[in-house]
């Protein structure tokens, strides 16, 4: 554990809680891509199956349970409780275009051709692109609520902090996981355009809206 890893995890947690609270307080999931949330629930489910096979630490177990629980709670709020506010027409990204290639890649490029390892690899690859339906939705509607942009900022910041964590671990522990690193770089790059808009617009008190 190092400071980048810890702040990365807390940033991830902040993002998840911000989204849940936004939906709960406003009683609405307008502007939120249910498809991205389904992908994140799938990511956590396939990655954290090791909860059943190996114990790493209390911190690790508790955080995994919180992430999984919140992911399913979010999906429940969007597709069940506040279904009437869900903007399905603008959430038109085709999930199979992500899940199928990612599944194929996980079978081809992995550390070990075993069931759990392939699911872990699948989750790493899928997480790197899981935000695309949300970004696609924002590009379609041309705007995002400010609270939604805070969610995206913390979600992007988390993987960027993990990049520093991996640099740290490489130098001080000699540890590196090429699959996680490459996917993490891809994931962070996908947020760069958004980070720019966040800093230049949202942090200056303006709403995030894209030029028509």
């Amino acid at each position: 554990m190092n400071i980048f890893r810890l702040t990365g995890d807390l940033s991830h947690l902040a993002a998840i809680i911000i989204l849940l609270l936004k939906i709960w307080k406003t009683r609405s999931c307008a502007g939120i891509s249910g498809k991205s949330q389904i992908l994140f629930a799938l990511v956590f489910t396939t990655r954290y199956l090791d909860l059943l096979t190996s114990f790493i630490s209390f911190y690790n177990t508790i955080m995994k349970l919180i992430y999984i629980g919140c992911a399913y709670a979010t999906v429940y709020l969007i597709y069940m409780k506040f279904k009437a506010t869900y903007d399905g027409n603008h959430d038109s990204f085709r999930l199979e275009f992500l899940v199928v290639p990612v599944g194929g890649l996980a079978c081809l490029v992995n550390h070990d051709f075993s069931f759990l390892e392939i699911l872990w690899t699948f989750s790493i690859y899928l997480e790197s692109v899981a935000i695309l339906p949300q970004l696609f939705m924002i590009s379609k509607t041309g705007e995002a609520e400010t609270i939604t942009t805070h969610y995206l900022f913390f979600l992007g910041l988390y993987r960027a902090l993990y990049l520093f964590n991996w640099i740290w671990r490489f130098y001080f522990e000699g540890f590196f996981d090429m699959i996680a690193i490459v996917a993490g770089v891809v994931q962070t790059i996908l947020y760069c355009d958004f980070f720019y808009l966040y800093v230049t617009k949202v942090l200056k008190g303006k709403k995030l809206s894209l030029p028509a």
């Binding site: 890893r5 995890d9 991830h12 090791d50 955080m63 992430y67 070990d112 390892e117």
Partner: peptide, 10 residues
């Protein structure tokens, strides 16, 4: 070959 328990990150 990776040790499966080495996935200690979240």
């Amino acid at each position: 070959k990776a040790d499966e328990t080495s996935h200690d990150e979240l």
